[in-house]
Design a protein around this nucleic acid. Structure first.
Lengths: 166, 166
DNA sequence: AGGTTTTAGTTGTTGCTTCAAGTAAGTAAC
DNA sequence: GTTACTTACTTGAAGCAACAACTAAAACCT
């Protein structure tokens, strides 16, 4: 990736500054998820995806959410979500129930156990996020990071499937 | 993650700005790898990890690298690396050979086919990186991103296992 | 009203990752 | 100069994710 191979139409190669920025960004995208993963596994016995699913449901009215909506917010396929919900259901954290509005749709609804799980694991998770992301940055940099990620999402998520109104 | 549950010792919750920054960063870390993954799968028939492995080897002298070193640079376990190398070896992209310096160590060495594979797939990959990361940002923002990621890596990778000298 | 398309979700298979257990070579301790 | 420990890597089993194929309900079309 550093030494340009000969080629018919020269690609626009990366400048040295861009290359360093890129390697660092890659490193962050490799290490950050792994870090959150292991913290949650250790402290809550959940994968990050499972936690995220529970957290997303918990933020909604009645602690319930249609599966399609949940799939969008967690950036997962319905297939993957369905498998994960089956596991979480087996563990007693949620139940599936039918939607009155649409007979095709199902709602994932947190049980009391599931809600307590979120309540118990969220503070530790937030603390980890602080340690890894916000503590090392100045307030100014947090703003820059937010703006930069916003820009990237313009390309990565043009329809705002993940972030609805931020 | 948004509504603070009651608790004996209140955790330092996220401010609204931090919360938005966090959700955006999460979205990027979910979408960016998926995007690179599908581009490489489509254009080169490689997973991003496989590509990265080949690319890292290709940047070294003799197109070869000890497995431990390779595991560090790709942030993988030796186990994962070993499985992947077996696949790449089967596909003819590399071979394993013994190290003279250390009888315990093995080197992964690109074959001519493997090198040609890197040469053929790198430009398309770089182009995708440009499209998704650098084109949407100003030069100033690229600098900010680099600095910010550098800070985060101070916590995520204190021993500089991934990035040696940048 | 009847047929097609789209939306919503499930399930089985296949493949990659993780984990645990193993071998073998080098290093340190006494 | 053995014993103990660490480093380097492999392998098999288990679990999770991606993909494809399926059912069923709603929307759309004319």
């Amino acid at each position: 990736m550093t030494s340009p191979p000969q080629r018919t139409s020269e690609p626009r190669w990366l400048t040295e500054d861009e290359r360093i920025a890129w390697l660092r960004l890659m490193a962050v995208t490799m290490l950050l998820p792994a870090r959150l993963e292991s913290e949650l596994k250790r402290d809550a016995g959940l994968s990050h995806f499972e936690y995220y699913v529970l957290a997303m449901i918990s933020e909604n009215d009645e602690h319930s959410l249609p599966l399609s909506e949940l799939a969008s917010r967690t950036n997962s396929s319905l297939s993957r979500l369905s498998h994960v919900l089956t596991r979480l259901e087996t563990q007693g954290y949620l139940t599936r129930c039918a939607s009155q509005a649409d007979a095709r749709a199902s709602l994932a609804r947190l049980t009391e156990t599931g809600w307590q799980k979120v309540v118990a694991s969220a503070p530790g998770h937030v603390d980890e996020v602080r340690t890894v992301v916000f503590d090392p940055l100045t307030a100014r940099q947090v703003g820059q990071l937010s703006e930069i990620c916003g820009r990237l999402l313009g390309t990565l998520d043009p329809d705002h499937r993940l972030l609805d109104h931020d």
